[in-house]
């Protein structure tokens, strides 16, 4: 636990949230990014649900891989185990939140089942293993990736709310203009590449 360790965590944080942004450079979780990004309010709800689920899933998957799969040399089962853990986790979280905190359930509830098999959740869990992160690094990477997701979906929602009042050519209405916006955002985020 020296300074180098914390510098390393900071680098993981910045590179996961900005440089290797899950949506704009890794293309994980495109469906919710395009689907839920028409209102800031729902984008924020989705963002926080994703932060919560990805961070929890990172902890669980990292623990399972390090203490069960890896010692028993069952690494090849990771895809099957992770997807089942994530699906079960989301169901469980939904039940707990519904029971414990109804206001929170009203805010996040509808988004929870939507992210059961969101590719970002499984993707981050697999990346943690691929990059050989330990538990703390996995948590930081999971949290930062989800933060990157939230940042880009909220930015996108803000832009789309503004665009609603603009005069967009008929051909580009709907999907195309959203994707062009995503193109410009991806270019902007590409500028972070030299940061670390």
């Amino acid at each position: 636990m020296n300074t180098n360790y914390f510098v390393n965590l900071l680098i993981i944080l910045i590179s996961a949230a900005f440089i290797n942004n899950v949506i704009l450079s890794q293309f994980l979780g495109i469906c919710p990014f395009l689907g839920i990004s028409n209102k800031i309010k729902s984008a924020v709800g989705m963002g926080f649900a994703v932060i919560f689920v990805i961070t929890t899933a990172s902890i669980l998957c990292s623990l399972i891989f390090q203490y069960i799969l890896s010692p028993m040399e069952l690494g090849y089962l990771q895809t099957i185990v992770f997807i089942i853990v994530i699906a079960a986790l989301v169901q469980f979280v939904e039940m707990v939140v519904k029971k414990v905190s109804p206001p929170l359930y009203d805010a996040l509830g509808v988004y929870l089942p939507l992210i059961t098999t969101n590719c970002a959740v499984l993707g981050v869990a697999l990346l943690n293993v691929e990059k050989g992160f330990d538990l703390v690094e996995s948590i930081v990477n999971g949290f930062a990736s989800a933060l990157g997701f939230t940042i880009s979906i909220i930015l996108m929602a803000g832009i789309r709310e503004r665009m609603e009042h603009n005069n967009i050519p008929k051909t580009l209405k709907g999907f195309p203009i959203t994707l062009i916006t995503a193109t410009l955002m991806a270019m902007a985020f590409y500028g972070f590449a030299g940061l670390v």
Binding site: S25, F27, K170, T171, L172, L179, A186
Partner: peptide, 29 residues
């Protein structure tokens, strides 16, 4: 740019725009 992430979004944007323009069957319109 076309083999970098922004290019992917741009190509898909052009594709869906063409589908809109020529009224081709697509889930996006």
């Amino acid at each position: 740019m076309f083999v970098k992430p922004p290019g992917a979004f741009l190509v898909l944007a052009m594709l869906t725009a063409l589908q809109n323009k020529f009224k081709l069957p697509s889930a996006t319109n």
